[in-house]
Computed example of a mutant assay.
Amino acid sequence: MEKIVFLDSASIIADIRRPAFPHAWEDYPATNPDQVLARLGDASIVITNKVALRRETLEQLPGLKMIAIAATGTDNVDIACCRERNIVVSNIRNYSVHTVPEHVFMLMLALRRNLLAFRNDLRDGAWQRAGQFCLFTHPVRDLHGSTLGLIGHGAIGQAVGRLASAFGMKVLIAEHKGATSVRSGYTNFEHTLRDSDALSLHLPLNPDTRNLIGTREFGLMKSGALLINTARGGLVDESALLAALQSGRIGGAGFDVLDTEPPRPGNPLLDLDLPNFILTPHIAWSSREAMQTLADQLTDNIDAFSRGSPQNRVA
Rank of each mutant, 00 (worst) to 15 (best):
M1Q: 11
D8R: 05
A10L: 08
S11M: 14
I13T: 15
R17E: 13
E26H: 03
E26C: 11
P33E: 00
V36W: 03
R39D: 01
I45Q: 02
K50I: 11
L58H: 11
L58S: 09
Q60N: 12
G63Q: 09
G63Y: 08
I67E: 00
A71N: 09
G73N: 13
T74L: 06
D75V: 04
N76W: 00
R83F: 01
I87Y: 10
V88E: 04
V89S: 10
S90V: 06
N94F: 00
S96F: 01
H98L: 10
P101R: 05
L111T: 00
L122A: 15
W127P: 12
H138F: 04
R141V: 12
H144A: 15
G152H: 01
G154P: 13
Q158F: 00
A159C: 12
G161H: 07
G161Y: 05
R162E: 09
R162P: 01
A164I: 02
G168R: 03
V171G: 11
A179M: 06
A179R: 12
F189G: 09
F189C: 15
E190L: 11
E190H: 12
T192K: 02
T192H: 07
A198F: 01
N206A: 12
P207D: 15
R210P: 06
I213P: 07
G214K: 12
T215D: 15
N229P: 02
T230D: 02
G248S: 09
R249I: 08
G252S: 07
A253K: 00
G254L: 01
F255Y: 13
D256G: 08
L270C: 10
N276F: 07
N276R: 14
H282Q: 08
A284H: 08
A284C: 13
R288T: 14
E289P: 06
Q292F: 09
L294I: 05
A295I: 08
Q297V: 08
L298I: 13
R313P: 01
V314Q: 03
